[in-house]
Amino acid sequence: MIIDLPGFIQREKKYWDELENRLQYLEEEPFAALDLQQVERFHYLYERASADLGRLGTLASEPETQRYLEALVARAYGEIHEIRGNSHRFHPLEWLFKIFPQTFRRHIAAFWLTVAITLLGCAFGGLALALDPEAKAVLMPPQLLQSPQVRVKEEESAVHDRLAGVKGAFSAFLMSHNIQVSIEAFALGATWGIGTLVILFQNGLMLGAVVVDYVLAHETPFLVGWLLPHGSFEIPAILIASQAGLVLAGALIGWRKPLSLRDRLQAILVDLVTLLAGAALMLVWAGFVESFLSQYHEPALPYPLKIAFGCVELVLLICFLGFSGRREGKNQFP
């Protein structure tokens, strides 16, 4: 049976046009609030277009009109059936002081795993260097192969500021590079977490080797004064990005979760972005500190001052991640 297509289109077109106009409005104004009457009308138009599509699909034979209606119904379907929250504008302060720390705490187990793997890498790297000093070339990057004593002597006797005129560029380079590394650590979570764990272990290996190298050379104050001011933000930031990678891995594996892969991923997507954005923000700060503070040593900057600064940063960061937004978080579903 064939329907009277021109008559059908003539009758229904005004409703399709109205639906299209409403869709355009909603697409241009994603935060628009519709009143009950508008919602009812929108729903009615969607159902009418759906019914028309059904009728056209079974009774008639006009693929172009069918495609047009399919596109219209598809757009309306996306608006009507979306139940994920997207109705709030972005509030930077609320995000920073509530959402980010709450998200971090919600996935704290993954964070502790990143800490454990990094510490394991540190122990392995430190032990390897202590037992076999010749392994230094393998464990540490080329720019750190210099003897700690020689480096400290050079840094402390430097007359000219070697970063003069390039501090901004250096900090920009550090920020970009570290954020890139964080993204990689996160994205490799797609390998069921193996890639993320390898990156963490590798970083730990290098860090452990550097620490033991300087400690054995009795240059601990220099080491702490050099690493702590920026490391107190940089290392946790990389760990948080890796935490996101492990959260992703957990969703992919889906162990003991009675949900489909799609639902498991959907449930964590916002959290992943939150963790990554938080890590990126921390790395911007770490880049500034590393360029403008960490690279200056005694006598220009006394080590106790640098170490105290690093400790204050670390304590503030721990308090922030541990307690910020805690009261509000109690009323939220996990």
């Binding site: 996306g78 059936h81 979306e82 997207n86 890139q180 490799l188 997507l269």
Partner: peptide, 23 residues
């Protein structure tokens, strides 16, 4: 780019799919 189930594309989806370009 659309949601796999035809729903509205969310900002988090856009961010994640673009960050994964790294891999």
């Amino acid at each position: 780019v659309v949601d796999e189930q035809g729903l509205k594309l969310h900002f988090s989806q856009v961010v994640i799919r673009n960050l994964f370009r790294v891999v």
